[in-house]
C-alpha cells in the first residue's frame, strides 16, 4: 500500500520503502510531495532517513545536472552528486533552518564540483604533452567546414560549447551554470556562493560576454 504514490507525478520518483512501525515515516512515504523542504529537513534532522531520501529524490535530477555540467561525465556526475547528498546528510545538524535547504545543498555540491575540476586541472598541469594536445583539440573557433552528417555537427557543437564553458574562470562558470542552466535567481546564487549580488551580476556579465565571443557562430 505504500507503493500507491509510485504512479503520481513527483511523488512517483520517490523511493519506496516500508516503515510500517512508524506513522510519521509511513506518512512521508505515502505523501512525500506534500512535505516541503523545511519539513523534510526537520524530520531528517530528527534522524528520519526516509525524509532525507525524499529530499534526494526531489533534487537528484538537478544535482546530477549541475555535476554533469562540471564533469561532462555520467559516472563522475553521479558520484559527485551522490557525494554531495551524503555530505549534506552527515552534516544536516549544522544546517541552519532559517536558510533554504537547496541553496545550502548546492553550495556543498558546487564545492565538490570545483574541487573535482581543481584535481583535474592539477593532473592536466602535470602532463605538458597532454595539455598541448588538449589545446589543439579545443582551440580554434574557425574549425573545418560543417559536415553533412547532422549528428556529427551537433556533437561538434556540444564539444565546442563544453570547451567554451570550461574556459570560463571558475566563478564565472559557476554563476553562469546556476543562472542559465539551473534558473536560480541572482539572490540565490549570491547565497550559494556567499557573494554580494553585485559580484554575481558582474560574474554573469563577464561569462555571457565571453561566451558570446567564443560561440558567435551559434547566435
Amino acid at each position: 500500500m505504500d507503493d500507491r504514490w509510485l504512479q503520481q507525478g513527483e511523488a512517483g520518483r520517490i523511493l519506496s520503502l516500508r516503515h510500517n512501525e512508524d506513522p510519521t515515516r509511513a506518512m512521508i512515504t505515502s505523501r512525500p510531495a506534500e512535505f516541503g523542504d523545511d519539513e523534510l529537513v526537520a524530520l531528517a534532522q530528527q534522524g528520519q532517513r526516509q525524509a532525507f531520501e525524499s529530499l534526494v529524490e526531489r533534487y537528484k535530477h538537478k544535482a546530477y545536472r549541475i555535476a554533469f555540467d562540471f564533469t561532462r561525465d555520467r559516472e563522475e556526475a553521479k558520484d559527485l552528486s551522490q557525494e554531495a547528498f551524503l555530505n549534506a546528510f552527515r552534516h544536516l545538524g549544522s544546517f541552519d533552518r532559517r536558510a533554504k535547504f537547496y541553496t545550502w545543498f548546492y553550495r556543498i555540491l558546487v564545492n565538490l564540483c570545483i574541487d573535482y575540476r581543481r584535481r583535474k586541472t592539477r593532473i592536466r598541469m602535470e602532463s605538458l604533452d597532454e595539455r598541448t594536445e588538449q589545446g589543439k583539440g579545443t582551440d580554434g573557433i574557425a574549425d573545418p567546414a560543417p559536415s553533412a552528417d547532422q549528428q556529427a555537427i551537433s556533437r561538434q557543437m556540444s564539444e565546442r560549447i563544453g570547451a567554451a564553458l570550461a574556459a570560463l574562470p571558475a566563478k564565472q562558470r559557476t554563476t553562469f551554470l546556476l543562472k542559465n542552466h539551473e534558473g536560480l535567481s541572482i539572490r540565490e546564487i549570491a547565497e550559494v556562493m556567499k557573494a554580494a549580488e553585485g559580484t554575481v551580476k558582474s560574474h554573469l556579465h563577464r561569462a555571457v560576454t565571453a561566451l558570446k565571443q567564443r560561440l558567435a557562430e551559434l547566435t
Binding site: R65, F68, S158, A164, N180, V208, K212, L215, L218
Partner: peptide, 11 residues
Amino acid sequence: RSLLPKTIVAD
C-alpha cells in the same frame, strides 16, 4: 535569446 539556451547541453 538565441545563444544562451543553446549552451545547455543536457545529459
